[in-house]
Design a protein around this nucleic acid. Structure first.
Lengths: 139, 139
DNA sequence: ACGAATCTTTAGTAAATCACTCAGGATGGT
DNA sequence: ACCATCCTGAGTGATTTACTAAAGATTCGT
């Protein structure tokens, strides 16, 4: 079970826009790509996904760019991850009748726990964590 | 983040051998494959991994087969998953200096939680759960 | 209206991974 | 010797990943 870099990029993109949310400016793809170390052409595709999922809106033309559609406190990790890769954790055998019920319960428990953590952290939490420069969980 | 069917097969194989552990018999690949709905030739490869990881031992020749090297209570989910796929959750961006620290902490927390659950369940737990025919967690 | 800067969309692609399949060899009991 | 079983390594079609590229649409300043 491996986190795809695409999902990570998506979260980084949202995180960056969350940090610049109060300035009420659009962010250029190029700037975002450079700031987060993401290949520009790849980021474009990711932003398209994030736009159709409703997290960001875009403006074309000169002085165009991207910005969040709602405050960072209203977007959680889980939402973004699900928009990019469907599930936080995808456990195909949960739908397999050959898989013993006891095992399914273990997978389900792991899946549920991952989802709960991802859903409990918003991008506002990330912004405040980075402003304090310190841990947001193990204070 | 998707669970590979290979890992699932590996756990099913161990689970099946755990259920037949007290009989102190070897299990044939063919029987195991049929019982758990796993392609036989694929299962062979998985058992090889499990053997070199020390979970099972094999016997060749007529009346050969596989059995666990230790009681099911001494083998946990996490062990088997790590033997097959390296990590319970693999988060490559934890090693990426471009990934913001706050995000790493979220991934780390999810990873840690998944590992802890996987490490807290043994295959003996699975056997007793299936004997009772009921839930092992949400009693 | 023009041109530059930006986003939009679609297509392509090399590499890796997944989930097998197969063939031939080694081993051990009878 | 024979046969049932495990052992090993090679091969493979399909899918996914992580990009790259190119041609088009939109907006703004002038």
């Amino acid at each position: 079970m491996k986190l795809s870099i695409k999902t990570d990029y998506a979260c980084r993109a949202i995180a960056w826009m969350a940090q610049h949310y109060d300035e009420d400016q659009t962010v250029h793809v190029q700037a975002l790509a450079a700031a987060q170390g993401i290949p520009e052409n790849y980021l474009v595709q990711i932003l398209t996904v994030l736009r159709s999922a409703g997290f960001v809106k875009s403006k074309r033309g000169k002085d165009g760019g991207y910005c969040l559609t709602r405050p960072p406190g209203k977007i959680c990790f889980g939402d973004v991850v699900r928009a990019v890769q469907g599930h936080v954790l995808d456990i195909p055998s949960l739908g397999d009748p050959n898989c013993p019920e006891g095992m399914k319960e273990v997978w389900r428990k792991i899946k549920h726990s991952a989802e709960q953590i991802a859903d409990s952290v918003t991008f506002e939490d990330l912004v405040s964590a980075s402003e304090q420069g310190g841990g947001m969980f193990y204070i």
